[in-house]
Amino acid sequence: MMLSRIADSMFWIGRYVERADQTARILDVMLQSITEDAPQDVPAACSRVYELFGSWAADDADLTVQRVLDRLVTDRQNPSSVAGALRTARENARGAREALSTEVWESLNTTSMGMPRGVRPSRMHGAFQFAKDRCAVVNGLVDSSMTRDEAWLFLRIGQLLERVDMIARILQTHDLADSSDAATVMLLRSCSAHEAYIRSYRGRVRASHAIEFLLLDSIFPRSAAHCLLEIDEALETLAKLHGSSFDRMGTAEPGRRIVGRAAASLRFRSLDDIVADFEDEMEQLQKVTGAVTRALGTTYFHPAT
């Protein structure tokens, strides 16, 4: 048992570190491709990048790689930029230091302070690399220095939910009609899944396989199904820690019901059914993450007293 406020903070630390990491990974791939691919329509490509992150261009001046970097990488006021997410994670950690190991706190603190204030397109890969490396350090320290108690479980659930949310966003903006190898490779790379896919499918890149892999592969740690199953497990452990009487159906807790239903729906329908209205399905998947967040709120973060 722990303070509800701290549990809430742990959850958001998990989400924001993952958001910083994923955002850096996605932008690294997408912006690289925009700058390398000269004939591409840069404003349109930038506009797609904003859309992916639930943002939009205020005017045409925003539709350059430099502006994307300013807004989605270094803007500390935007909690969905890389630096902003790290700063928000750090602020949450500052309010929850007694629940974190000193190593995790210090590494979040130095990571947040170390993010550059401005990045040029020619140097952006270094900034992304920094953010990815530092998030890996934070995650590694969480893994090696924190007790597997409630605090850790909330952090972990936050991380996994954010991952599901991100993959749903990427898939939602992906153009299914474009089944070219290049587009499929881009999709896999923005999900940091290209290498893993190649090993599983022995080299042949096919659009339908890629979607299947990203959504359903049970042992790829970034697939939606894998994350949902892990969340279910974490929620079960949480319930056990709270001494809830044995939940034979596994449905007593609203959070588990939502997660279980989403996982089953993804895994036990045919892929054709899922891609029939793919954009809407991915929208639903994002709503699942919101619903789980609210369920955690009523069960743990703001329980009625």
Binding site: M1, M2, L3, S4, R5, A7, H242, Y300, P303, T305
Partner: peptide, 8 residues
């Protein structure tokens, strides 16, 4: 009382 994840 304090508000915890397991109630008051």
């Amino acid at each position: 009382y304090m508000r915890t994840t397991a109630g008051l």
